[in-house]
Design a protein around this nucleic acid. Structure first.
Lengths: 191, 191
DNA sequence: AGCGTGATGTTACCGAGTAACATCACTTCT
DNA sequence: AGAAGTGATGTTACTCGGTAACATCACGCT
């Protein structure tokens, strides 16, 4: 038996999502979250998360890392968009059906808080930046890399949105491919 | 003579920019800003700006409105990208050389604060959203409108960045056209 | 048994942001 | 002229996010 209940971090996240869903983000206090997470305190919360918002977004940096890895290993012959497509598959395939439920709750909570939307936009920009950086490392010019990365980020967030808005049996990979395809044709219409 | 020195709002902005530049954003207190703005108080500051960050971004909603107006009045025959180009010209032409200096200082301050970068990203997203909305009103499909709007926002922010990084005699309109052109060719390379 | 260690708690503090009420200087109406 | 109204400001007091310094406690290791 452990000295403390293990997984404090995970319990904090669960407690936060619950409370945010029940009362809203702003009406919920960090002390409340810590308390519900098994009698913890504010201090412990901030040891795990840099601020109150971050409890909902922590661990998202890994998305950028996953896509960057796939991009680094993509065949030399792949075009920028093909490379991004591979990376999207790699990232999306790491999402299980369980995370779909979490995603649903998260989406609802974020939709009700401007503060959380701001952080969400910031994370989205970080993902796009990570993709662009990885593409540039392959020698792709800055602007092309930026635009390809933007399409990738849009595809992922758009697909995630659809995935968490529906209840069918399609996987996130399915949605990402669909969304990415639509974006590519939209981009070609633009010319 | 007025009962109070007029233009409290403007004085607050100036004081904030000064102090942020001298001490950094986080080391500066709202009380300090209000005090330097002519003996005002915290309360007055928050009557003018919804939060501490907003003092640097307030009034930026008008950018979206300007572009939306131009888009609404653009000729029926214009393609999405042509429409965005017109709107970019309209917005950029409202920037005088005086605002270039302000922009320089702003850029330096924002570059040193994650919190301000987050807000900046949020404003950028708002601009992009406003453009997209205006395009959709013209019957342009959602994804195409989104992408055209994204290109527009990128062109504006990229051009503003270059404009405030240099000291030549070129106007923001010049930079916007250049940037938008580069983005369009990058987008075509992407196919 | 004693020691080190890492996760937690305690206390005290600062600053952002809000609310309720008071003030004050000018405007307008009578 | 005097009274009432109005809008921008100040005052006070509070909540809560976030930080720092120090104490505690339960375990593993020697």
């Amino acid at each position: 038996m452990a000295r403390w209940e293990p997984n404090a971090r995970e319990r904090l996240v669960r407690a936060a999502v619950e409370l945010f869903a029940e009362q809203g983000y702003e009406a919920t206090t960090v002390n409340e979250i810590a308390e519900r997470a098994g009698g913890l305190t504010k201090t412990t919360f901030f040891r795990h998360f840099s601020d109150k918002r971050e409890v909902l977004f922590a661990g998202q940096e890994i998305h950028g890392r996953i896509m960057a890895e796939v991009i680094a290993e993509a065949p030399e012959s792949a075009t920028p968009l093909e490379t991004v497509g591979l990376a999207l598959d790699g990232l999306a395939s790491s999402f299980t059906e369980e995370r779909r439920d979490i995603g649903r709750r998260l989406r609802a909570v974020i939709a009700n808080s401007a503060e959380l939307q701001e952080r969400s936009a910031s994370k989205r920009a970080a993902l796009s930046g990570a993709i662009a950086q990885a593409l540039r490392t392959r020698g792709i010019s800055e602007l092309v890399a930026d635009l390809a990365a933007e399409l990738g980020a849009r595809a992922f967030y758009g697909a995630f949105d659809r995935w968490t808005s529906t209840a069918d049996s399609r996987t996130l990979v399915d949605y990402v491919r669909e969304m990415f395809g639509e974006l590519k044709t939209a981009a070609s219409v633009l010319q």
